[in-house]
Amino acid sequence: MIGNSVSTTAGAWRAGDGIAVPLREATVAWAVAAHAELSEIATGYGHFITIDELAERVQETSGVHTAAPTSTWVAAILRKVARRCHKAGEPPLTALCVRQNHTVGDSYKYVLELAGLPIPDDLELHAAYARWQCYQYHGAAMPADRGVPPLTPKVAGRRRSASATAQAEAKPQPTRAAVCAQCFIQLPASGTCQYCV
């Protein structure tokens, strides 16, 4: 075993030789790789990536790996990317990075904090507009009709389902008239069947 190699699963190391990489160096390498990956994703209209996929890609691209859970380090990487985009006047590439359920979640709020903006009621719609800006900025072929930017598929599906459910609940359901249990003729208002008395 090489003296400087990582002996625990929580550290970072270079893939080529297994030499330990200080966490500060690793996060810088991952953030640079994340910015490049997200910039590439932004060249395709409607494209996005999950946090876990991004974590895998940045490790492969940078050559710096870790066995630490993604949740323990990826938020710091996304914050670095958000700061870089903000300082450079670029749209927030971190809007392209979503959780498994296709939502941007709380990590996207950092983009708004950097810009000094209030947290909107609909964070997902705000992120959709930010993705739209990323696609434009990075040269994606944009659709001819420039309506409302699309939500991610899972978010859009949940909203359609919730909307359909709300519409179904809002419709008054026709009430069935009471019928006689013996002859199945509609009962009068008195509730007593005149034919089966």
Rank of each mutant, 00 (worst) to 15 (best):
I2Y: 10
G3C: 08
G3N: 11
G3Q: 12
S5W: 14
S5L: 08
S7Q: 12
T8P: 00
T8S: 15
T9F: 12
A10F: 13
A10G: 07
A10P: 00
G11K: 09
A12G: 04
W13D: 00
W13T: 01
R14V: 11
R14K: 15
I19W: 03
A20T: 14
P22R: 15
A26Q: 03
V28E: 12
A31R: 10
V32P: 00
H35G: 00
L38G: 04
S39F: 03
A42E: 05
T43P: 00
Y45R: 13
G46S: 06
H47S: 14
T50Q: 06
T50G: 07
D52F: 07
E53Q: 14
L54E: 01
L54V: 06
A55N: 04
V58I: 15
Q59W: 07
Q59V: 06
T61G: 00
T61Y: 07
S62M: 06
V64G: 03
T72D: 12
W73E: 03
W73L: 02
V74R: 05
I77E: 01
R79I: 02
K80C: 02
V81E: 00
A82H: 01
R83G: 01
R84D: 07
H86M: 01
K87N: 09
G89K: 10
P92I: 00
C97N: 06
V98T: 15
V98G: 03
N101L: 01
H102T: 04
V104N: 04
G105K: 05
D106Q: 13
D106S: 13
D106Y: 09
Y108L: 11
Y110H: 15
V111R: 08
L112M: 08
L114G: 01
L117M: 13
D121S: 11
L123K: 01
L125Y: 10
L125F: 12
L125I: 08
L125W: 08
A127Y: 02
C134W: 02
Y135R: 04
Q136D: 06
Q136I: 08
Y137G: 00
G139N: 11
A140S: 09
A141M: 12
P143T: 11
G147S: 14
G147L: 09
V148A: 11
P150W: 10
L151V: 10
P153E: 11
K154T: 10
V155M: 03
G157H: 12
R160A: 12
R160F: 09
R160N: 11
R160D: 12
S163E: 14
S163P: 00
T165F: 08
A166K: 15
Q167I: 08
Q173D: 05
Q173C: 02
P174F: 06
T175N: 07
T175Y: 07
R176K: 15
A178F: 01
A178M: 06
V179S: 10
A181H: 12
A181C: 04
F184M: 08
S190M: 07
Y195T: 11
Y195F: 15
